[in-house]
Amino acid sequence: RHRTTFSPVQLEQLESAFGRNQYPDIWARESLARDTGLSEARIQVWFQNRRAKQRK
């Protein structure tokens, strides 16, 4: 699998969602996937990585 590159618009949507809830449930992730055009799995990994980045 190649590395996913996120567009500025996608990142804005993801960061906005992260600001509201750092642990989105499956319904929120699937909604974000539809809105961004990404797969739910990529959304899930993005949130995992974003939480790890915040802990540093």
Rank of each mutant, 00 (worst) to 15 (best):
R1W: 03
R1M: 15
R1P: 14
R1K: 15
R1I: 14
R1E: 13
R1L: 06
H2A: 10
H2V: 12
H2Q: 10
H2W: 02
R3V: 10
R3Y: 04
R3Q: 09
R3K: 14
R3D: 15
R3L: 14
R3N: 07
T4Q: 09
T4Y: 15
T4I: 12
T5Y: 10
T5W: 06
T5G: 05
T5R: 04
T5F: 07
T5K: 07
F6V: 08
F6N: 04
F6W: 05
F6D: 10
F6A: 06
F6I: 13
S7F: 12
S7N: 07
S7K: 10
S7D: 05
S7W: 02
S7M: 06
S7R: 02
P8K: 13
P8I: 04
P8T: 11
P8M: 05
V9G: 13
V9K: 14
V9Y: 07
V9M: 11
V9Q: 13
V9W: 08
V9P: 08
V9E: 10
Q10H: 05
Q10M: 06
Q10D: 04
Q10L: 04
L11I: 11
L11C: 07
L11G: 06
L11S: 05
E12C: 06
E12S: 09
E12P: 01
E12W: 05
E12G: 09
E12M: 04
Q13W: 09
Q13E: 10
Q13F: 07
Q13K: 07
Q13D: 05
Q13N: 10
Q13V: 14
Q13S: 06
L14N: 00
L14R: 01
L14S: 00
L14I: 02
L14D: 00
L14C: 01
L14M: 03
L14T: 02
E15W: 02
E15Q: 04
E15P: 00
E15I: 03
S16N: 10
S16M: 13
A17K: 02
F18C: 02
F18D: 01
F18W: 04
F18N: 00
G19W: 08
G19P: 02
G19I: 04
G19K: 12
G19F: 09
G19C: 13
R20M: 09
R20W: 04
R20Q: 11
N21S: 08
N21A: 05
N21M: 05
N21I: 04
N21R: 02
N21W: 06
Q22V: 05
Q22K: 05
Q22W: 06
Q22M: 07
Q22L: 03
Q22D: 05
Q22Y: 02
Y23K: 08
Y23G: 01
Y23R: 09
Y23W: 14
Y23C: 07
Y23D: 08
Y23Q: 06
P24E: 04
P24C: 05
P24G: 11
P24W: 10
P24H: 03
D25G: 06
D25K: 02
D25Y: 02
D25T: 09
D25L: 02
D25Q: 04
D25W: 02
I26H: 14
I26L: 10
I26K: 15
I26Q: 14
I26N: 06
I26V: 13
I26S: 11
I26P: 07
W27D: 15
W27R: 15
W27C: 15
W27E: 15
W27S: 15
W27M: 14
W27L: 15
W27F: 12
W27Y: 11
W27K: 15
A28K: 10
A28R: 05
A28Y: 06
A28E: 11
A28W: 05
A28C: 08
A28T: 13
A28M: 13
A28H: 15
R29G: 01
R29Y: 02
R29L: 09
R29I: 09
E30I: 12
E30C: 10
E30V: 12
E30L: 13
E30Q: 12
E30N: 11
E30T: 13
E30S: 14
E30G: 09
E30Y: 13
E30D: 06
S31Q: 04
S31P: 00
S31D: 09
S31Y: 08
S31H: 09
S31A: 09
S31N: 11
S31C: 15
S31W: 03
S31M: 06
L32R: 00
L32D: 01
L32N: 00
L32P: 01
L32S: 01
L32Y: 00
L32H: 00
A33Y: 01
A33D: 00
A33W: 02
A33P: 01
A33V: 06
A33H: 03
A33E: 04
R34K: 11
R34S: 06
R34H: 04
R34A: 09
R34V: 08
D35Q: 08
D35M: 12
D35S: 13
D35V: 11
D35P: 02
D35K: 15
D35F: 08
D35E: 15
T36R: 01
T36M: 11
G37N: 04
G37E: 08
G37V: 01
G37P: 02
G37D: 05
G37A: 03
G37T: 02
G37Y: 02
G37S: 05
G37F: 04
L38Y: 01
L38D: 02
L38I: 09
L38G: 01
L38A: 10
L38Q: 05
L38N: 02
L38C: 10
L38V: 11
S39V: 04
S39C: 15
S39Y: 02
S39F: 01
S39A: 10
S39T: 09
S39W: 01
E40T: 14
E40G: 08
E40A: 12
E40Y: 05
E40P: 06
A41F: 06
A41S: 14
A41H: 08
A41E: 12
A41R: 10
A41L: 09
A41G: 11
A41I: 04
A41P: 15
R42E: 15
R42T: 15
R42F: 07
R42S: 15
R42N: 12
R42I: 08
I43L: 03
I43R: 01
I43Q: 00
I43D: 01
I43P: 00
I43S: 01
I43C: 01
Q44N: 14
Q44V: 10
Q44Y: 07
Q44D: 11
Q44W: 06
Q44C: 10
V45C: 11
V45P: 01
V45K: 06
W46I: 03
W46M: 00
W46P: 02
W46K: 00
W46F: 03
W46N: 01
W46A: 02
F47T: 01
F47N: 01
F47R: 01
F47G: 02
F47P: 00
F47I: 03
F47K: 00
F47E: 00
Q48V: 12
Q48E: 12
Q48R: 12
Q48S: 13
Q48A: 15
Q48H: 03
Q48W: 08
Q48N: 07
N49F: 05
N49M: 07
N49A: 13
N49R: 11
N49I: 04
N49K: 14
N49L: 07
N49S: 11
R50H: 09
R50I: 00
R50A: 08
R50K: 11
R50E: 14
R50V: 01
R50L: 01
R50Q: 09
R50P: 00
R51L: 08
R51N: 03
R51Y: 01
R51C: 06
R51I: 06
R51G: 01
R51M: 05
A52S: 12
A52Y: 10
A52K: 11
K53I: 12
K53N: 05
K53Q: 15
K53C: 07
K53M: 08
K53L: 14
K53F: 10
Q54R: 05
Q54S: 11
Q54E: 09
Q54K: 06
R55Q: 06
R55F: 10
R55S: 13
R55T: 09
K56C: 06
K56P: 07
K56S: 02
K56Y: 06
